[in-house]
Design a protein around this nucleic acid. Sequence first.
DNA 1: ATAACGCCTGACACGGCTGTCAGTTTCGTG
DNA 2: CACGAAACTGACAGCCGTGTCAGGCGTTAT
Lengths: 197, 197
Amino acid sequence: MEKSERRQQILECARDVFSKRGYHDAKIEDIVTAAGVARGTFYLYFEDKRAVFEEIVDRAFAQIGMVIVRVDPKDKGRTLGDQVRENIERIVTMLLDDQATTRILLSEAMGVDPAFDRKLRAFYEIAEKLLEESLREGQDLGVVVPGDAKMLAHLTLGALKEVLFQMVKREAGYEKVDIIDGVYRFLRQGCLRVDGS
Amino acid sequence: MEKSERRQQILECARDVFSKRGYHDAKIEDIVTAAGVARGTFYLYFEDKRAVFEEIVDRAFAQIGMVIVRVDPKDKGRTLGDQVRENIERIVTMLLDDQATTRILLSEAMGVDPAFDRKLRAFYEIAEKLLEESLREGQDLGVVVPGDAKMLAHLTLGALKEVLFQMVKREAGYEKVDIIDGVYRFLRQGCLRVDGS
DNA sequence: ATAACGCCTGACACGGCTGTCAGTTTCGTG
DNA sequence: CACGAAACTGACAGCCGTGTCAGGCGTTAT
């Protein structure tokens, strides 16, 4: 078996094990057993446990980064709403496509170790800033409600994250299109229809 | 020092240590050092590490349970909107009041061990079911948008959780009232004002 | 004074997991 | 086939944190 091939195989097995057991409960032994190789082989391809984990997360982040497209108000072909919706669709599609990794991102990644936590936060902060800026632009254009853009970004991301988390954690069987639709409508109109303040 | 007093003291120190370092990175040594007692003393009051952690989480859940009040459509004194808002206010107040515990609940609790994870999920499921039912009632009354009530529950809880998480994780200085307001408005009207589907 | 009690102590044994490395097998090449 | 290189193996040493327990110390009762 070729070197890069084996590496990839171990990486995938590690991903599955992390996804199932969580970072701390995943033993190197589990990974190598899943991959059908000996303990030592693992260390030929990866520095240590944390290094594999980091690579899994890094790849996932890179993919997410690729998939987000800035909304363009001047695009005459598609409405702003469509563009937003398409972003949601691309993100959801990607995450549902590799559910094991998504499970890792959304529930196991935090609490690995302090240094790793910082790294994670740095990424989230970038994503968040991007969304926040977009929202602020949207406010100037009058397509986003006024108010603290940063908080709106948190609210939005939180809602999306939770639904996806539920989707991958329990194997709750939403259809992809239902998720996209549900999230989009929630962003457009919230959920309450009460009078008052 | 009295028994119950010491117990409480160790509990609080444990909470702080867990909050700062996360469950796995928190050593018994850290806890007893913080409490200014010897290693053995800890084990006079708690079965083991996991038992303290469980107690911290249990107490927090109990408190949350106390604080949620069912919305009553027949209440003539307060509108439904006010009642929802008051629920948000009570929850937010409680969680911001003990930020260390909130930090534990929102970021360290998952991934402790498989058995504990199940327990956590059970709780969330109850909270979720409660909200889901309320939303469904609301839909019958026409004060909640139509659509999958379970998904609306996830979206709502996710948005709330994320904002609180940001609040306690970074020491981002929102005012309590801003959070309550932000969340409430998000639930009432979402954030997008675009045309189309 | 001393016994009995409650509370506390910290050195230590134990177990589990990691990362290593000397040795083995497999592969490719002349 | 024979030889070197490359890939793999798994027993093992070392580490680290846990939970224990035999004993210490102060206080109250006799």
